[in-house]
Design a protein around this nucleic acid. Structure first.
Lengths: 146, 146
DNA sequence: GTATATGCAAAAAGTTTGCACAGTA
DNA sequence: TACTGTGCAAACTTTTTGCATATAC
């Protein structure tokens, strides 16, 4: 674990990997770290524009890619065609999405520990992170029949 | 389970849900059912064009959305910004992706049974499907150090 | 001081929509 | 026959790229 609430820790991760802590990157990281849920790239571009006027769209995209590679952010498609980004410095993220209304609930509970070990053994991978998406119908979107 | 190797079963799912089994939908379903891994929308458009000349791009997109809603297909972003589609009529899909070279391995092993029950109980969701993405470095992409 | 990163604007890529016509049930 | 679905082309949205300039270290 690399982050325990202090944003500076994250810039440390950047620097240790040989990247500079620039204004654009700060704005993106701060926004994501303060945002509890998912955001699309255009939403992040907009939010960052407010937070740090003058930061360009391209830098936001480049930063998102970088953060994803560094394992600080996860990308999910939420069952649709627009990718969304979530801050997930712990390397894993889990959510439940309603296929009716799109409501999303994030949960911590993780059942992958043992499986990860088995995958590592079986395929020789060094596991870094994972994303688990569970889909279903929330109470409000279930057929009212019986 | 809705599908055990006979493509006609899938058209049955369509019809039962009130949709027609058209040429465009057949082409998309057949392609996905025969394709072991993931494909992007443009790839599917191209493949379907070969299989059934004259099928339009829009129909492919519309069919992909429909199949996703029906739970026959899963969408994943594979850690990047291009969504990919996989045939997953069983309602769940699991893969391991190398963050170095992008190599993908699909696996069956599923540890979600009990968790799904707990999520259903806790949040009142009726669970329909899930997607599990595990990221790491494959043997060829691990730092050779040590 | 120097290599890395940026902002901008333009290009490319991907997705969605409207509508007259075709095809399924 | 009635209605769902289609193909096309255009509109739109999202993402990527090239390059001169700025900036972090």
């Amino acid at each position: 674990v690399v982050y325990s609430g202090n944003i500076e820790d994250l810039f440390g991760v950047l620097r240790r990997a040989g990247y500079k802590a620039t204004r654009a990157r700060r704005a993106v990281i701060e926004f994501l770290a303060e945002t509890p849920g998912h955001a699309t790239a255009p939403e992040i571009v907009a939010a960052v524009g407010v937070r740090a006027a003058g930061v360009g769209r391209a830098s936001v995209y480049r930063t998102l890619e970088l953060l994803t590679q560094l394992g600080l952010v996860q990308v999910s498609s939420m069952g649709g065609s627009i990718p969304t980004y979530v801050f997930a410095p712990s390397g894993h993220h889990h959510h439940l999405v309603c296929t009716g209304c799109g409501k999303t609930i994030e949960f911590e509970e993780c059942v992958l520990g043992e499986l990860e070990q088995r995958l590592a053994d079986t395929f020789g991978f060094r596991i870094e992170s994972h994303l688990m998406e569970v889909f279903g119908r929330c109470p409000d979107c279930q057929p009212t029949s019986k």
